[in-house]
Simulated assay, not measured.
Amino acid sequence: MEETGEPHLRGCAVSFTKLKALLAADLYRYAGRVDLKSFVRHYAFTPGYKYTVLMRTCGWLKRKPAKAFGLYPLAKLMLLRARYKYGFAIPEYTEIGPGLFLNRFGGFYIHGDAVLGSNVNLTHGVVLGYMNRGARKGAPVIGDRSFLGSGAKIIGGINVGEEAAIGVNAVVTRDVPDRGVVVGIPAKLISDQGSDGYINRMAPEALLAACADAYPGQRREKAQPAVVGALQA
């Protein structure tokens, strides 16, 4: 589906059951288990998880008739309050796979047309922005089990492959292959060791399976190995 730069519903959970499954997978990334005690603890004291709960809940309510009879505006207000309090700017309709981990807080900006896979790690200062023109028009697609270091910037229709690692303050201007490690400004490929060791407490397959078809969006093609030579140039 083409990016529009406008609000949409592609990343909004289609049912309450799927919403719970997504939040359970997210919780596992923080707690290593899924239970009520862990939910209360991390919702109360972990900014990343609290924002994720508000974001996904707001997206689910956005799909309801008449915007859930007033509950959506209330949820949206709570989400905006959390945005300004914690420094997370991630729209509720962004297509984000299960097992999202927001490390620390402050300075996150994710465009609503960006696509993130499952078990992705984002560190403070990450920007996934939209390009309005040119060959890279659109927003980034981030593959499963990828790690984005503090201050990483990815702008435009760039594909980051699965299990990739983006270095601190890297500015990514080209596609990154599966398991690629890129650093610098502009980012260059330095190894194929990927994100091994950086993605802890990954949501297990059972939790990921429960999230299948949680939202109707479709991911674009991921980065292909052919881009390796370009990144090394």
Score class of each variant (00 low, 15 high):
Asn159Val: 02
Ala139Val: 00
Asp35Arg: 14
Gly134Glu: 04
Ala226Asp: 15
Asn121Asp: 11
Tyr72Asp: 02
Thr4Val: 01
Asn121Gly: 04
Leu102Gln: 07
Leu102Trp: 07
Ala206Gln: 11
Tyr215Asn: 05
Gly5Ile: 04
Gln193Leu: 06
Arg174Gln: 13
Val126Tyr: 01
Leu100Thr: 10
Gly229Arg: 13
Arg136Cys: 10
Leu208Lys: 03
Asp178Gln: 12
Glu2His: 07
Val14Glu: 15
Glu95Asp: 12
Tyr49Asn: 11
Ala206Leu: 10
Tyr49Pro: 09
Gly138Ile: 01
Tyr198Cys: 06
Thr17Tyr: 14
Leu19Asp: 06
Lys37Arg: 15
Leu74Met: 05
Glu162Ser: 09
Asp26Trp: 06
Met78Glu: 11
Lys222Gln: 12
Gly217Phe: 00
Gly138Trp: 01
Ala206Trp: 14
Lys137Phe: 02
Glu162Thr: 13
Gly194Ile: 02
Leu102Asn: 08
Tyr72Val: 01
Ala164Leu: 05
Leu74Ile: 01
Tyr72Ser: 03
Ala165Ile: 03
Asn200Arg: 15
Ile185Leu: 08
Ile142Ala: 01
Ala66His: 10
Arg179Glu: 07
Ala139Gln: 02
Ala82Pro: 01
Val120Tyr: 00
Ala24Arg: 14
Gly167Asp: 07
Leu74Gln: 01
Ala89Thr: 13
Val115Gly: 00
Thr4Ser: 04
Phe69Gln: 11
Trp60Gln: 12
Ile96Leu: 06
